[in-house]
Deep mutational scan, measured.
Amino acid sequence: SSQSQGISSSSTSTMPNSSQSSHSSSGTLSSLETVSTQELYSIPEDQEPEDQEPEEPTPAPWARLWALQDGFANLECVNDNYWFGRDKSCEYCFDEPLLKRTDKYRTYSKKHFRIFREVGPKNSYIAYIEDHSGNGTFVNTELVGKGKRRPLNNNSEIALSLSRNKVFVFFDLTVDDQSVYPKALRDEYIMSKTLGSGACGEVKLAFERKTCKKVAIKIISKRKFAIGSAREADPALNVETEIEILKKLNHPCIIKIKNFFDAEDYYIVLELMEGGELFDKVVGNKRLKEATCKLYFYQMLLAVQYLHENGIIHRDLKPENVLLSSQEEDCLIKITDFGHSKILGETSLMRTLCGTPTYLAPEVLVSVGTAGYNRAVDCWSLGVILFICLSGYPPFSEHRTQVSLKDQITSGKYNFIPEVWAEVSEKALDLVKKLLVVDPKARFTTEEALRHPWLQDEDMKRKFQDLLSEENESTALPQVLAQPSTSRKRPREGEAEGAETTKRPAVCAAVL
């Protein structure tokens, strides 16, 4: 046999249950609850290399294929790409003598399909299967379609040439079993990697079954959420508030809700932002270029202005709740996480202390139980975000031990490091100062900020419009641009040419 590394010779191994799959997660993409704000000051410096380099560890398999027929071997997927077919160049070659004697062998292509993985959001991997055969590759009886790919989820059954000719079961060793999710959700989405997690739940990458488009699904544990919100009269209202707010909003710089499922837990389906959180971008770069800050901040102002015009105060604006559309420097941003939002009543007064301390406005800290506050709290938070983006460190921090965090904020005395700000323009610093004003009545509004000289930049605004146009074009394009080929190089076993392929839609398939 010419099988590559990772293939075992026996096809009769006992199949494990899916609970053996491991679970991976990374930083929070968007969480309903406010958790302790991640610290920006503690960015690790590059460490000196050791005298002796450690040995390379043996790579762990990321997936496993269990053979369902004699003549096929099990495969431990270690590499990122595997070709399957009769050709000797394939990493998994159909060359077992037992297999060659079967009637089905002649229906398999020289290069029938490939399984591979690509880097997705949060640097996690996504597994795909890609059909290159004349007679078809099927996943859970659905045709992939020649020249098309679809994501592979845990426990997928792979069939060759005929939908009933099941050859492998695919085990993704990095994700959960699909069966743990409600059927209504599974009918519409293929669940994938964990993108982030918080005290009350997690955010998962998923794929729409009909279109193969990526989405983010925010899962909120009702049990954990009820415990964490025990002081509230009705904890469920917080989730329902977020859903109702998101459904009503329609702005290019605000995250869109696509679906909602109320089962044992809450499942909020949101558009996916491939670039992750602004927080991670700031930490990764230490600070952002001023031109990049301007492009992002302009969009934040437009989003918050839209919220305020619609009578909504976000109340928890922070870099973790600003998501980026891509890994590119120039990209769209979207505001997310409306769990603490407040729809303005007639009095415009709110007395609930919520939000993240580092970003809270002075009037929030001094008015607990005594007075109210209004939309100006969001403008203060925007000032803190702009400060961080321009400088790479927070204006107020618990680690300045000589003054408490509350006193720093209520006095408006931010930590100004001259040598850092020497590289920032006077106009940018002036806008920061106009937003970090203790008196909410004297603080800049979103309208005033948008009129500030720093943002009178036609090149930046043109760039934003171009990015918007690109997004609109990409969302308007159909996901499947061509029909699967019906040509046949070899006959199917026991049926006429093209008899099955043309009847089945290529579900969740995307043209390369």
Results as ranks from 00 to 15, higher is better:
Ala509Asp: 06
Asp378Met: 00
Glu320Val: 03
Leu307Phe: 15
Ala263Asn: 09
Leu435Pro: 10
Lys434Cys: 07
Ile343Ala: 11
Trp421Val: 03
Tyr306Asp: 10
Ala482Ser: 05
Val304Gln: 02
Ala371Ile: 03
Leu477Gly: 00
Gln305Arg: 10
Ser469Pro: 03
Ala422Pro: 00
Asp280His: 04
Ser326Leu: 12
Ser348Glu: 09
Pro252Gly: 01
Asn415Ile: 06
Leu302Val: 08
Ile245Ser: 12
Cys293Asp: 01
Glu448Ser: 00
Glu277Phe: 00
Gly345Ser: 07
Gln483Arg: 08
Phe297Gln: 11
Lys434Leu: 09
Lys433Asn: 08
Thr475Gly: 13
Asn374Val: 03
Pro357Leu: 14
Ser325Cys: 10
Cys508Thr: 10
Lys334Phe: 00
Arg287Ser: 14
Cys379Ala: 05
Gly284Asn: 06
Asp430Arg: 04
Val432Leu: 15
Gly284Gln: 11
Tyr267Lys: 07
Gly345Pro: 13
Val366Met: 04
Ala506Pro: 14
Tyr359His: 02
Pro505His: 06
Phe261Thr: 07
Ala303Met: 00
Gln408Pro: 08
Asp439Phe: 00
Ala506Glu: 04
Thr352Gly: 03
Leu278His: 02
Thr292Phe: 00
Gln456Gly: 06
Tyr266Asn: 14
Cys379Gln: 02
Leu360Asn: 09
Ile243Gln: 00
Thr358Trp: 15
Lys286Ser: 08
Ala376Val: 12
Phe387Thr: 01
Glu290Leu: 05
Cys331His: 13
Asp280Cys: 12
Ile255Phe: 04
Ile254Arg: 01
Ala291Ile: 05
Asn374Glu: 08
Phe297Ser: 09
Ile343Gly: 01
Glu470Thr: 14
Cys354Pro: 02
Val283Asp: 01
Glu244Ser: 13
Phe338Thr: 00
Leu386Thr: 00
Asp459Tyr: 12
Phe297Ile: 15
Gly372Arg: 11
Phe279Lys: 02
Ile409Pro: 00
Val282Phe: 09
Tyr267Val: 05
Arg315Gly: 04
Asn415Arg: 05
Arg488Gln: 07
Asn415Glu: 01
Glu290Ser: 08
Lys286Leu: 08
Ser326Trp: 01
Met300Tyr: 02
Tyr298Cys: 13
Phe416Ala: 07
Lys463Ser: 15
Ile257Asp: 14
Ile255Ser: 05
Thr446Glu: 00
Ala376Thr: 11
Ser341Asn: 00
Val364Cys: 05
Val366Asp: 04
Asp457Thr: 00
Arg492Leu: 12
Leu302His: 08
Lys342Tyr: 08
Gly284Cys: 09
Lys281Ile: 14
Lys248Trp: 11
Val432Phe: 06
Gly311Ile: 02
Asn321Arg: 00
Val269Gly: 13
Thr347Arg: 15
Ser474Phe: 11
Thr358Phe: 14
Gln465Gly: 00
Lys289Trp: 09
Val283Pro: 01
Tyr296Lys: 05
Leu450Ile: 08
Leu246Gln: 00
Lys286Asn: 14
Asp280Leu: 14
Cys293Ala: 06
Glu458Ala: 07
Leu307Pro: 03
His251Cys: 14
Lys286Thr: 13
Glu495Gly: 03
Gly372Ser: 14
Leu324Pro: 03
Gly383Pro: 03
Tyr266His: 15
Ala371Phe: 15
His340Arg: 03
Glu447Gln: 05
Asn374Cys: 11
Asp316Pro: 00
Arg492Val: 11
Thr410Ser: 03
Gln299Cys: 06
Glu448Arg: 03
Gln299Gly: 05
Lys286Phe: 10
Ile243Glu: 14
Thr370Pro: 11
Thr356Ala: 07
Phe396Gly: 03
Thr352Ala: 03
Lys334Asp: 08
Ala476Cys: 13
Asp337Gly: 01
Ser348His: 15
Ser411Glu: 11
Arg443Pro: 03
Ala510Cys: 14
Leu360Pro: 01
Asp316Asn: 01
Ile333Leu: 05
Val366Ile: 10
His308Tyr: 13
Ser411Cys: 12
Met460Glu: 09
Tyr393His: 08
His314Gly: 00
Gly311Ser: 03
Gly355Gln: 03
Ala476Pro: 15
Ser367Ala: 13
Arg462Tyr: 07
Leu295Ser: 07
Leu390Cys: 14
Asp459Ser: 05
His314Asn: 02
Thr347Trp: 15
Lys247Val: 15
Ala449His: 00
Ser348Pro: 15
Lys433Glu: 12
Phe338Pro: 02
